[in-house]
Simulated assay, not measured.
Amino acid sequence: MVWEEGGARTADPAQVVLESEPPRRLSYTWHTFTPEWAANAGVDEELRARLAADRRSQVTFEIEPLGETVRLTVVHEAHDPGSAVLGMVSQGWPALVSGLKTLLETGEPLPEPKV
């Protein structure tokens, strides 16, 4: 599996699809935190090193039909309490799923946050 984010690509043999049951389920190992990824994502070297030291985790997406709608469940697991990755994804996934919901409902993405 190749991770692509913001124009940067991260390939690693340990990034693999664990389960694929289209269109209901996808599970894969979370990506590798390279210096190139960190530079592209605006992550400093100290945080990148902490992220890279955490155990590799797993993400699972489940899609369940509910009449004319669907339920999307995102599970990110295998983190040690207090891990750097857990802190990052605990904020990242809710924002990403909220943005996806807005896009699907309105056809427009959420505006980029002003920094």
Rank of each mutant, 00 (worst) to 15 (best):
G99N: 03
E4P: 07
S83V: 09
Q58V: 15
R48K: 07
P13T: 01
S27P: 02
L110I: 03
F61D: 00
A38Y: 03
E21G: 07
W93C: 02
S98C: 08
H79S: 09
D12P: 06
F33V: 02
T73V: 10
E77P: 07
S83E: 10
A52S: 08
M88A: 15
E45K: 05
P94H: 03
W30A: 01
D80M: 11
G87Q: 05
V85R: 10
V97W: 00
S20E: 14
S83D: 11
S83W: 11
L96T: 11
G99E: 02
Q15E: 15
P81L: 07
A49S: 04
L72K: 03
E5C: 14
S27V: 02
L100C: 01
V85L: 12
P81Q: 09
V115M: 09
S57T: 05
V97H: 00
V97M: 03
L103K: 14
G92S: 11
R55G: 12
G7I: 09
P81Y: 12
P23Y: 00
E46F: 06
G6W: 06
Q15C: 14
T102H: 08
S57Y: 08
L72V: 02
P113C: 08
P111K: 10
G42F: 04
W30Q: 04
W93T: 01
A14N: 13
V85Y: 13
W30S: 04
R56K: 14
E62M: 04
G67Y: 06
G7P: 10
Q15F: 10
D44K: 09
V97A: 01
L110Y: 01
N40M: 05
A78Y: 15
R50Q: 15
E64R: 13
E36N: 10
L47G: 07
R71G: 07
V16H: 12
S90P: 04
R9W: 07
V70W: 11
M1V: 13
G6L: 10
H79V: 05
